[in-house]
């Protein structure tokens, strides 16, 4: 359980409901990291937009190298994310 109260999908309205639906359409589920940012949907949306642009769109590094970097950083930080 997170240490703050999250806004669940069933409780979401407005821009948060839209954010959750977009996440579900993209990944098939709503990641916990998105739910934990649910207290401010606009900030969460910008964070996710940056993630998608950086990690899921074509750029100077191929997707495998980007994912490998992410895995190494998260391992160094001993973090699932």
């Amino acid at each position: 359980m997170a240490w703050i109260d999250l806004i669940r999908e069933s409780e979401a309205t407005g821009s948060l409901a839209k954010l959750y639906q977009t996440a579900r359409d993209r990944a098939g589920y709503i990641a916990q990291i998105i739910q934990v940012m649910s207290r401010d949907a606009d900030v969460a949306a910008e964070s996710i937009r940056f993630y998608v642009r950086l990690m899921k769109s074509p750029n100077a590094l191929n997707a495998a190298r980007r994912e490998l970097l992410a895995a190494v950083v998260s391992n160094v930080n001993d973090c699932y994310y």
Binding site: A2, W3, Q32, I33, M37, Y51, N77, C79, Y80
Partner: peptide, 12 residues
Amino acid sequence: INRVADGLGVDP
């Protein structure tokens, strides 16, 4: 994002 996750106690 690791700091956000750990700071708020996110479940995997």
